[in-house]
Each structure stands twice: as C-alpha cells, then as structure tokens.
C-alpha cells in the first residue's frame, strides 16, 4: 500500500501519470503558442475595457476564416509572435474615418461607441483607409490622439482577437 501523499503526487501508476503530464504539457504549449496565447496587458490604452496588468486569453484562430469587423478587439503584431498591441477596430478597408470633437464618423455618419466611458477631444480629418488595412485605436480616449498609438495597420499584422 503506497503512502497517501505518493498517490496524490504520482497517482497509482507513476509512469502513466508522467506520460499524461507530458502529453498535457505539450497540449498546453501547442495551444498557448499557436491558438490561444495568454495575454498580459501592459499599459492603459484599453482602459476602461481592459485594465493595466489584466490577463486575457488571445485567439489566433479568430480571423482565419473571416475578416475583423468594426468594434472587435484585435491583437496587432509588433515583432515576432509574443508581443502585441491590443486595439479596437474602428474602420474597415475602403471606409473613410474622421473624429470631430471626439465623435467617431465613418463615411460621414456618426458611430455609437458604447464601450467608451469618457468623452474626448480627438480630431482627425476625413481619412480613407487603404484596401488591406484597418484603422485601430484603444478605448482610452482620455489620452490625446497625438500620444495614443492609433492609426492604420495592415491586415497581415492582425494576429488574432481575444477569446476572453
């Protein structure tokens, strides 16, 4: 009869437990690396939707079968495949985006942004988004547009969305 702590630690059959642990480790590595990477948010550009220091789960498979839509959160590639900007899609390819006293206009029409908590004074002249590109920005409009990492990004640099 094995001591109870040994059973807790290794199970009744340590070899099977070891193989299970290895298989689980490999599964989590593959899922985390290629499909659902854990995302540690650094910075306040997505406040108040996502706070500085929060943990989320990315989803690299999200836009394999379809294109990002307006209002969706996307991970924008920096370099390599571990660090990303987390932004919201505001304008799609071919659309014209503008900000007038913080109000978002797409093709000249006012867009509701229910995810915002505070107003802003963002100003942007009408800008056409080139084909194959998206206009992305963070939710923290308290930061002036000039100091905010917002603008055009290529479709190829959108690495995925958020699972949660």
């Amino acid at each position: 009869m094995l001591p109870i702590w040994t059973i807790w630690l290794w199970g009744r059959n340590p070899r099977v437990t070891l193989w299970r642990a290895l298989a689980l480790g490999a599964l989590f590595y593959v899922l985390g690396r290629f499909a659902f990477p854990p995302v540690h948010v650094s910075g306040m550009s997505m406040e108040p939707t996502i706070h500085d220091g929060a943990w989320r789960l990315g989803n690299k498979l999200k836009f394999l079968q379809r294109e990002p839509e307006r209002g969706e959160l996307v991970m924008v590639r920096m370099a390599g495949w571990r660090a990303f900007y987390l932004k919201r899609v505001l304008a799609l390819p071919g659309e014209t985006i503008a900000f007038s006293n913080g109000v978002l206009l797409i093709n000249g029409r006012v867009q509701a942004e229910p995810y915002l908590r505070c107003g802003s004074a963002w100003q942007l002249p009408a800008t056409r988004v080139p084909l194959g590109e998206y206009f992305v920005a963070g939710d923290n409009r308290a930061v002036p547009l000039a100091a905010h990492k917002a603008g055009l990004t290529r479709r190829g640099d959108i690495a995925g969305g958020l699972l949660w």
């Binding site: 924008v76 590639r77 920096m78 900007y85 932004k87 942007l124 002249p125 009408a126 800008t127 056409r128 206009f135 992305v136 990492k149 917002a150 603008g151 055009l152 990004t153 290529r154 640099d157």
Partner: peptide
C-alpha cells in the same frame, strides 16, 4: 517600424 502608423496628414 511601427505596425500601427499615423495616416498621412493629407487625409489620404
């Protein structure tokens, strides 16, 4: 070499 770039000031 930012992957998010400012639109041109011309608005295009």
């Amino acid at each position: 070499a930012e992957s998010i770039r400012r639109p041109d000031s011309s608005g295009q």
